[in-house]
Simulated scan of single mutants.
Amino acid sequence: MNGQWPPTIRSVEAFTVPVSVKSVWIFLELSFADGTAGWGEATLAGAEEAVLAEIGHAGTLLSGRSFAGAGEAVAVLRMAHASEARVTVMRAVEQAFLDALARRAGMPLAALLGGPERPTVPVYANINRGISDRSPAGFAARAREVVTEEGYKAVKIAPFDGLDWARVDHATGTRLLRAGIERIAAVREAIGPELALLVDCHSRLSPVMARTVLREAEASGLYWLEEPLAEDAFEAEIGRALRSFANDRGIRIAGGENLTTMAEARQFLARGICDAILPDIRWSGIRTGFAMLELAAASGVGVSLHNPVGPVLDRISVQVAAALPSLLILERQVRESPLFDEIRGGPQPLNDGAIVLDATPGFGPAPDRAALERYTRQGFSRPASLAGIGGSGADA
Results as ranks from 00 to 15, higher is better:
Thr8Phe: 01
Gly255Thr: 07
Ala141His: 08
Asp169Trp: 13
Ile26Pro: 07
Asp99Thr: 07
Gly388Ala: 10
Arg65Met: 06
Pro6Asp: 09
Ser63Phe: 14
Glu227His: 07
Phe245Val: 14
Ala263Gly: 13
Leu98Val: 00
Ile277Asp: 00
Ala125Cys: 05
Glu149Val: 15
Leu62Asn: 08
Glu231Asn: 12
Ala394Leu: 09
Ala394Asn: 08
Arg65Pro: 05
Thr172Lys: 09
Phe340Trp: 08
Gln319Leu: 10
Asp358Ile: 09
Arg86Gly: 13
Val24Ser: 00
Ser284Gly: 09
Gly379Gln: 01
Pro365Arg: 12
Glu29Asn: 14
Leu176Ile: 11
Gly162Arg: 12
Ala111Asn: 15
Ala92Lys: 10
Arg91Ala: 10
Leu293Thr: 03
Ile389Tyr: 08
Val12Leu: 14
Leu225His: 13
Asn2Trp: 09
Ala359Tyr: 02
Arg167Pro: 00
Gly3Thr: 05
Leu30Tyr: 05
Pro6Met: 07
Leu98Gly: 03
Leu113Lys: 01
Pro116Met: 03
Gln378Gly: 12
Pro365Trp: 15
Gly256Glu: 04
Phe290Gln: 09
Ile389His: 07
Thr261Glu: 10
Phe340Ser: 07
Gly59Pro: 09
Arg382Thr: 02
Trp25Leu: 01
Leu305Tyr: 04
Ala186Val: 11
Gly40Asn: 03
Gly56Cys: 06
Gln267Phe: 07
Leu176Gly: 03
Arg65Asn: 13
Asp352His: 10
Leu77Val: 01
Arg215Ala: 14
Ala73Lys: 12
Asp133Gly: 01
Gly130Trp: 00
Pro159Gln: 06
Thr148Gly: 08
Glu72Phe: 06
Tyr375Gly: 06
Arg204Ile: 09
Thr60His: 14
Val334Leu: 12
Leu225Cys: 06
Gly239Phe: 02
Ser284Val: 03
Ala219Arg: 15
Val334Ala: 08
Ala230Lys: 04
Arg103Ala: 11
Ala75Glu: 13
Arg266Pro: 05
Gly192Phe: 13
Pro18Leu: 00
Glu189Ile: 01
Gly180Lys: 11
Ser31Arg: 15
Ile238Gly: 09
Val24Gln: 02
